[in-house]
Simulated assay, not measured.
Amino acid sequence: MSTLRLEVLKCFKSLHRTRQRVFEGDVKALVLGRSQINIEYKKNQDIKDINKINKLIETSMNVEKELLTTVIQAKEIKPGVYKAEIRPEILRLDNVPYKDCDELIDKNK
């Protein structure tokens, strides 16, 4: 088995593990995610061009990173009340106030 094929299989398995982690407990999202991953890989299984395959591997890795760093799962704990499940790898950005807000605050002083 070629190293490129092994890399593709590694990305395929890694995406599925990420899907399981990100959507843990959400049966609908798990099923839809599995289906979409499988559809995309089957759609591209006959590609022979090494450059295209490398580009698809890169895309797969980017999708995995995006799922891990941006998708937050919220569960309803009682009607109208949700609890966010924020994993350690979720990207956290500084909250920067909108510029016009500073001007309004200064005018009110």
Rank of each mutant, 00 (worst) to 15 (best):
M61H: 12
E7P: 13
R17W: 07
M61V: 11
R34E: 09
N44I: 02
K99D: 01
K83F: 06
N95F: 03
R19P: 04
S14M: 08
K109S: 04
L68Q: 11
C11R: 03
T70S: 14
A29H: 03
F23W: 14
I53N: 04
L9Y: 07
I57C: 06
K109R: 09
V8I: 13
K55S: 11
R19C: 05
E89T: 08
G33M: 07
C11Q: 04
K48P: 03
R17F: 06
K107Y: 00
V63Q: 00
G80Y: 13
A74N: 14
N108R: 06
Y98C: 02
K43S: 13
G80F: 11
D49Y: 14
D102K: 10
T70C: 10
L56Q: 15
A74Q: 14
L4T: 08
L4M: 08
E89D: 07
K65P: 00
E103R: 08
K28T: 14
L4P: 04
D100R: 14
A29W: 02
I50K: 11
V31G: 10
R17G: 10
K75Y: 08
Q45A: 13
L30Q: 12
V22L: 01
I72E: 15
E24V: 05
K13E: 07
V63M: 02
D26V: 12
K28V: 13
S60G: 14
D26W: 06
L9P: 01
A29F: 04
A84R: 13
R21F: 08
E76S: 06
R87G: 00
R17Y: 09
M61D: 15
L9S: 09
I86R: 14
V22M: 01
Y41F: 11
E24D: 09
C101Q: 02
D94Q: 08
V22R: 00
P97E: 00
E103H: 07
P88Y: 01
K83I: 03
E58N: 12
D94V: 03
S35M: 10
L67Y: 12
L68V: 07
P97R: 05
I39N: 12
I53Y: 04
L56N: 14
G80C: 13
Q73M: 14
